[in-house]
Design a protein around this nucleic acid. Sequence first.
DNA 1: AAGTCTCGCAACCGCAGGAGT
DNA 2: TACTCCTGCGGTTGCGAGACT
Length: 337
Amino acid sequence: MEVKGRTRSTTVQISEDEMDLRRGPWTVDEDFTLINYIANHGEGRWNSLARCAGLKRTGKSCRLRWLNYLRPDVRRGNITLEEQLMILDLHSRWGNRWSKIAQHLPGRTDNEIKNYWRTRVQKHAKQLKCDVNSKQFKDTMRYLWMPRLVERIQAAATAPTSTSTVQAGAINGTSSIGSATSSITSTNTNHHLINNNNLDIHAGQMVLPPAGFNNIGQRDFGGTAQITPSYTPENSSTGASSSDSYGAPQISPVSDLTDYYNIPVCNNPSQDYFPVGYPDQSLTSPSGNYFNTGLLGLQAMEQSNQWALDGADTSDNLWNVEDTWFLQQQLNNMNSL
DNA sequence: AAGTCTCGCAACCGCAGGAGT
DNA sequence: TACTCCTGCGGTTGCGAGACT
């Protein structure tokens, strides 16, 4: 017998025994049955489990339902800033290895991370007219988006009483990203992730951006934050308590890269960088540290637009002319490298 | 109020690899 | 070794809900 697959135009061969197999959304009764069975017999052997439990589902379907939805430690709700940062970083290293990435995000499933990537990150890439796999988009993530996330996490940690929608609670507990030399605590100090002047983000990978990223730093916005990224999830303690961010303040799903939407980042996915449209003014900062300069520039821009930490969807906000020019210049200088 | 569009999520699929026989 | 079955992974997409017109 041939039956149309749920989402495919192709047909699938099923046996007579499988004719009455259910597909589609799970009912409460089915959930209850599966939970009870696993509670009594444990998980695994999914095909026989499905049969023995009396579920008219395939083993695969039962497994998926359990792992992605019914498992007690499944964590639901918006992806936190920390989690976003980790996803971006791990994806930059491992690509679409969702299950591997999920192992570093306790309570998050590969499916959820995959969905996050497709619905958020790829959307941003599309809006930036970038190919999500292009070097330019990856650099934009690494040098703009990720530092921005770090900045927001840091701000949230150092201003726990802020009215920000991103508060210290988002990084409370034992969850951590980075080296095991320190840990995030709820005291807002010594966060290894957001440790002032020594932010570990990614050993040797997120250390310094291309020189072009320094340009914005020529604007004197002041501030003291310095970031020296070098974290390695391999030696990080990802053992966040499953409840450490339950109920934690959540962020807008599009609150990050959208900050840069109005910048013509790239128009041709096939090219690494868009053509230089501005004179090359590679004004390397004395420190050569983008995170000490460019990021603050961005921060200042955001503040000037009252974007900083408001947690709102900023996609509709517009850069002022000057700020737009500076960011364009920064990005353009990447192109000239 | 009704119709349309957009978005996010849940669940499907095919495939690959491991385990067992 | 070859075959079958099971499990897990990554890609894809239908559907419901909310936003928009």
